[in-house]
């Protein structure tokens, strides 16, 4: 019988360790101790901007095209092609942009953090930091989290714009069953600023979780290069699960009780 409980117990234990480590990093950012290494934070901002912006915008642009195409054909099948903007607005802002952002953050940023910190761990660079009298969690993890918080809201909002633009191209320019003005009327009618705020919150919670999970698995990697590979794979699995959980909970919390749609007055 004990065997049945071994796996869940291990999961809970692992979750507890991640939560404890994450709490420490969050504390270092909230207490502003991280500002002691503001130069490193800015360097991490640069790494994020130069390394991840285009690939995230690119992915979101593609899924924005898909939302537009699906929306246009679906509404045409219902006899209401002018309402393609409803599908595009909801699909882009509420679901596809957060998920696309989360997937690419997991694949590019999360795994990058695990691989970099894991390599530093196995080559004694983290130990070298510690013996120089530097708090390695503060220097390596808190700076990355703060950099993510500084850069990603803007990157995310620009990604939302890329998704909107792609949907417009698909609905108006490619399929062309609704005019530009008609699309815009419906498109903007079915969303408002709080929706954008909720969408940004969804994306930032995903990003925070991804950075923290990446830091945990990278910082605690062991067992040589194979161990770093294993940690990278584990972090990817964990991040994909978290992205979907956060996505589901976000939709429930923000739009579950009130779809915020101008239907029926």
């Amino acid at each position: 019988m004990a065997g049945w409980f071994a796996l869940p117990r291990e999961w809970i234990s692992s979750f507890g360790e991640i939560a404890k480590f994450s709490g420490k990093i969050l504390g270092q950012v909230y207490s502003l101790r991280v500002l002691h290494f503001f130069g490193e934070t800015l360097r991490q901002c640069g790494v994020l901007i130069l390394g991840s912006t285009l690939v995230i915008w690119g992915l979101v642009f593609i899924v924005g095209l898909q939302c537009g195409i699906e929306g246009a054909y679906f509404t045409r099948a219902q006899g209401a092609p002018a309402y393609a903007g409803v599908f595009a607005a909801w699909c882009d802002l509420r679901e596809i942009v957060p998920y696309g952002f989360g997937y690419m953050m997991s694949a590019k940023v999360g795994t990058g953090i695990v691989a970099e910190l894991g390599s530093m761990r196995i080559s004694d660079e983290i130990d070298a930091l510690e013996v120089m009298g530097i708090d390695s969690v503060l220097f390596l993890c808190a700076t990355r989290l703060l950099a993510a918080w500084l850069v990603l809201p803007f990157m995310y909002m620009a990604a939302v714009g890329a998704g909107f633009f792609a949907s417009y191209l698909a609905v108006v320019q490619q399929i062309g069953e609704v005019s530009s003005g008609g699309f815009s009327l419906i498109f903007w009618m079915f969303q408002n600023p709080p929706d954008l705020l909720y969408s940004v919150i969804k994306g930032m919670v995903m990003a925070t979780a991804i950075v923290l999970v990446g830091c945990y698995y990278g910082y605690h990697a062991g067992g040589g290069p194979v161990g770093v590979g294993t940690a990278t794979a584990k972090s990817m699995v964990m991040n994909i699960v978290l992205v979907h959980l956060i996505g589901m909970l976000g939709t429930q919390v923000f739009w579950g009780a009130n779809p915020r749609a101008p239907i029926g007055g």
Binding site: S119, M132, G133
Partner: peptide, 19 residues
């Protein structure tokens, strides 16, 4: 501990230089 470590210099096996 961090203060005490400032009294130390450590040469790791492969140098442990920051990549």
């Amino acid at each position: 501990l961090f203060d005490m470590r400032k009294r130390f210099g450590v040469l790791f096996q492969d140098g442990a230089l920051f990549g």
